[in-house]
C-alpha cells in the first residue's frame, strides 16, 4: 500500500514536471521548419518569368531528392535507390542501339564550351550551340588544360582495355553502354553527382551521346593516344 502511494506520488510529481516543462516550452513557439515549397518560391521569385524559359524551373523528382542532401554520403540508402531507379528508367538509346559513333563529332561537343546560357544583358550562347564544356571539369586529351572537379578521362578507353581487336566484343560494347548511361544520365550510376544529366535533360541527343562515348573510348580517338 505504502509502495503504491509512493509510486503514485512519484508519477504525479513526474507528470507535474512534464506539465511545467510544456508550459515553459510554449511561449518560445518554435517556428515551422523551412519547407521545400518555400525554398522554391523564394528561388523562382528571383528568376525571369520569360515564357521561353519557365520550364527550366520545373524541379523533377530526382532533383527534389538531391536538393535535400549536402552530399551523397549524407543520403539514406532509400533515397540513393530512388534516384538510381528514376534515372535508369528514363535512359533512351539511339535507333541503332549500342554502336560505335564518330569520335570527331564527339570531340566537337566535348571541346565546345558554349551551350544553354542566356541573359538578356548579353554573354549569351546561341540557341544552336550545343557544347558540353567538358574541359571545365575534366582533363581529357593529353596536354589540354581542364578542371579537376570530375575524374581525369585521359586514356579512358585504354583504362578499360579497349583495343582495335576487341572493340566489337560483347564486353567492349557493354562498356560502351555503361559510359553511354553515365553521359546520358550521370545520376543512374552516381546519384546526385555534380555532372549534368545531359541526355535526360535534352542538352544532347542520343546520337550526340554516342559520339561522345566514341570520342572517349575509341582506340583511334586522340584521348587514347
Amino acid at each position: 500500500m505504502k509502495k503504491v502511494a509512493l509510486t503514485a506520488m512519484t508519477l504525479l510529481f513526474l507528470s507535474g514536471m512534464a506539465q511545467s516543462q510544456q508550459k515553459k516550452a510554449q511561449p518560445q513557439k518554435k517556428e515551422a521548419p523551412v519547407t521545400q515549397e518555400e525554398v522554391i518560391k523564394v528561388l523562382t521569385s528571383g528568376l525571369s518569368t520569360d515564357p521561353r524559359f519557365v520550364w527550366k524551373v520545373q524541379q523533377d523528382e530526382a532533383q527534389r531528392i538531391c536538393s535535400q542532401y549536402t552530399s551523397r554520403e549524407a543520403m539514406p540508402a532509400q533515397a540513393v535507390q530512388k534516384v538510381i531507379q528514376l534515372s535508369q528508367s528514363g535512359i533512351r538509346y539511339p535507333q541503332w542501339g549500342i554502336f560505335w559513333g564518330d569520335w570527331r563529332e564527339g570531340k566537337k561537343i566535348v571541346d565546345n564550351p558554349r551551350g544553354g546560357r542566356f541573359a538578356s544583358y548579353g554573354f549569351s550562347d546561341s540557341p544552336t550551340d550545343r557544347g558540353g564544356n567538358c574541359y571545365a571539369c575534366h582533363l581529357i586529351e593529353k596536354g589540354a588544360p581542364g578542371g579537376t572537379m570530375g575524374p581525369n578521362l585521359y586514356q579512358y578507353g585504354k583504362k578499360w582495355n579497349i583495343t582495335k581487336e576487341n572493340m566489337n566484343s560483347p564486353e567492349a560494347l557493354e562498356r560502351v553502354r555503361a559510359v553511354y548511361n553515365i553521359i546520358y544520365n550521370a545520376w543512374s550510376a552516381f546519384p546526385c553527382s555534380s555532372m549534368p544529366r545531359f541526355g535526360h535533360n535534352g542538352a544532347f541527343s542520343p546520337e550526340d551521346v554516342m559520339n561522345i562515348v566514341t570520342f572517349l573510348l575509341h582506340p583511334d580517338s586522340p584521348v587514347n593516344k
Partner: peptide
Amino acid sequence: QVYYARIGPWDF
C-alpha cells in the same frame, strides 16, 4: 537551402 537546390536543365 536555396544554395543546395538542384534545379534547371543542367542540374546545378
